[in-house]
């Protein structure tokens, strides 16, 4: 019980860290304002110039929001680790009793805060500009939760990469969710892919998470079972990889930034 309380405090410590950084650095707030809005308007205005079909606008609103959910759940924890690394303080954090999964959950606190803002923006603008409304709140929220689960798994993988590659990891970590999003068919069915890519897409939990979202609009067939199975598979692989990566990083002395 005592250890659980301490663990919660360490998770809160990471949330506190992100909050202070965001409070002092307005640039960090762009990822919940300017950048998502650029994505939202470029996609929705492009689609809106061809059709006013509400389901198409719906796929864009829900898909873009689902993508941002995955992105933030993936990125916040790694950003936290990399901040400490770049500022030359990583050894001070890593000698504390912190555990790697506490970075993930600390990042998730910040992700929830940012996504609340983005959801208000996307759903509000979707309603006032395109007259889009969520029809099935329960199923839609479940779809968003599914996207958050994918983000957490990606976050575990990315943290492992950060342990191993340190400063060089960031380009990969940024590119990773975008590549996954393209493969997962955020705005289109994965049946457009050639067979080998389609097969790969079917193994990704993100594909099934976005299908759950699209299913609320009648644009895809959602399968919670497939989602859970692929998430469990990738989740296990991610945990094994990151535990191994941390051991390797300790072996190679990569948790200390030498002078």
């Amino acid at each position: 019980m005592n250890e659980l309380k301490r663990s919660l405090e360490r998770i809160l410590a990471h949330g506190y860290h992100i909050l202070v950084s965001a409070k002092r650095d307005a640039f960090r707030l762009m990822d919940m304002t300017l950048w998502p809005l650029v994505l939202f308007f470029s996609m929705s205005l492009f689609a809106g110039s061809f059709t006013h079909e509400p389901r198409v606008i719906g796929v864009i609103v829900l898909g873009a929001l689902g993508w941002r959910i995955t992105y933030h759940f993936q990125m916040e924890a790694v950003q936290l680790y990399m901040d400490n690394y770049w500022m030359g303080m990583i050894e001070h954090v890593m000698i504390s009793p912190v555990r790697w999964w506490e970075f993930i959950l600390g990042g998730a606190i910040s992700a929830v805060g940012k996504i609340a803002v983005i959801a208000l923006l996307f759903l509000g603008l979707g309603h006032y500009v395109f007259h889009f409304s969520v029809q099935h709140w329960g199923a839609t929220l479940a779809g968003f939760l599914a996207c958050a689960g994918c983000g957490l798994v990606l976050s575990v993988f990315s943290l492992g990469v950060a342990f191993l590659k340190r400063g060089d990891a960031f380009a990969f970590i940024f590119a990773f969710p975008d590549a996954i999003a393209v493969l997962s068919g955020v705005f289109y069915p994965v049946t457009v892919f050639p067979a080998p890519l389609r097969l790969l897409a079917e193994t990704l939990p993100t594909t099934h998470a976005f299908n759950l979202l699209k299913a609320t609009l009648g644009m895809a067939e959602g399968s919670p079972l497939r989602y859970c199975a692929t998430l469990a598979l990738w989740g296990c692989l991610a945990v094994l990889f990151t535990s191994w990566a941390l051991r390797q990083a300790r072996r190679a002395g990569k948790l200390v930034k030498m002078k």
Binding site: S21, D83, M87, G88, M89, E91, K259
Partner: peptide, 11 residues
């Protein structure tokens, strides 16, 4: 740990 040449988190 105390190091004589650590960086610090800005802000």
């Amino acid at each position: 740990l105390v190091r004589g040449f650590s960086g610090v988190l800005e802000k």
